[in-house]
Amino acid sequence: MNPKKASSLPPLSPAEQALMDLIWRKQPVSVGDLLRAVNDGRAEAITRSTLQTQLHRLETKGWLLSDDEGRARLYRSVPSEKGGRGKVLAELKQRFFGGSGLSLVRCLVEEGGLSKEEFDELNQLIVKHQQGKKP
């Protein structure tokens, strides 16, 4: 399979997004390790077959690749975490904020419950971008 650019990938459901978050942190990851991570702290555990169905869907959509390594099948993401999260953010911005980045940031600032440290970091990021520096 040719890796796709994140922008060309189909959208993720909330459950798929949560799974991708785990995969980005733990990749390459086996079904067994992923199942333990998914069920950690859950009141009602999901089954191995449910997880495998979700992984198959993500593979079909182009978000994941799998390789058989020894006895275990290992999964890794196709897009980088930054690229994948950017894709999800662009969809969120379009769907909930009419494509306006300012509206999205305004919502985070006014309703998002940002900590003082997060506000300070946001201000530093804005200043760097105004000066033409990339973080």
Rank of each mutant, 00 (worst) to 15 (best):
E91H: 12
K134V: 07
E118C: 07
R73K: 15
R48V: 02
E16N: 05
L35C: 05
G113Q: 10
V105L: 15
F97T: 06
E59G: 09
S115Y: 07
L92Y: 13
G99H: 09
I23M: 06
L55C: 09
L108Y: 08
L51S: 03
V105R: 06
D21Y: 00
G83E: 07
K133S: 11
I23A: 05
Q130A: 14
E44T: 12
E111D: 14
T50P: 01
S49A: 10
A18R: 14
G132Q: 13
V105H: 04
K61F: 04
R85K: 13
L74H: 03
L65R: 15
Q27Y: 00
E59H: 11
G101E: 13
G112V: 07
G132I: 11
T53Y: 09
R36A: 01
P135H: 10
G132H: 11
C107A: 12
L34A: 01
I23K: 06
S100E: 11
F119G: 03
Q124I: 06
P3G: 13
S13R: 15
K82M: 04
T60E: 14
Q94V: 06
A37Q: 04
L64Q: 07
E117L: 11
G99M: 07
E110N: 13
W24A: 00
G70V: 06
G101H: 12
G101V: 05
R48Y: 09
D40Y: 00
D120Q: 10
G83F: 01
S30P: 05
Q17K: 14
L92Q: 14
A45T: 08
L55P: 09
S115T: 15
V78N: 09
L114V: 06
G32S: 10
T50D: 02
S30K: 00
F96M: 14
G132Y: 08
R48T: 04
L108N: 07
P14S: 10
S103M: 13
G99N: 08
R106E: 15
T50V: 03
R76H: 04
G99D: 09
L34S: 01
P11A: 12
F96A: 14
T60L: 12
E91W: 07
A72G: 00
D33H: 04
M1T: 15
S66D: 04
S7G: 02
S103G: 10
T50N: 06
L65Y: 11
G83Y: 00
E44D: 10
S13Y: 11
E59W: 05
T60Q: 15
E117M: 08
P135E: 12
R95N: 07
P79V: 03
L108A: 14
L108C: 13
E121H: 13
S8W: 03
Q52T: 13
R85G: 00
F96S: 08
L102S: 08
A18V: 01
G98D: 14
S30D: 00
A37P: 10
L74D: 02
L19V: 03
L22Q: 06
I23R: 06
L12K: 00
G86S: 14
V78A: 08
S115A: 12
N39L: 00
I126A: 15
C107V: 07
H129T: 09
K82S: 01
M1N: 11
H129S: 12
E69C: 03
T60M: 08
V88E: 03
I46W: 01
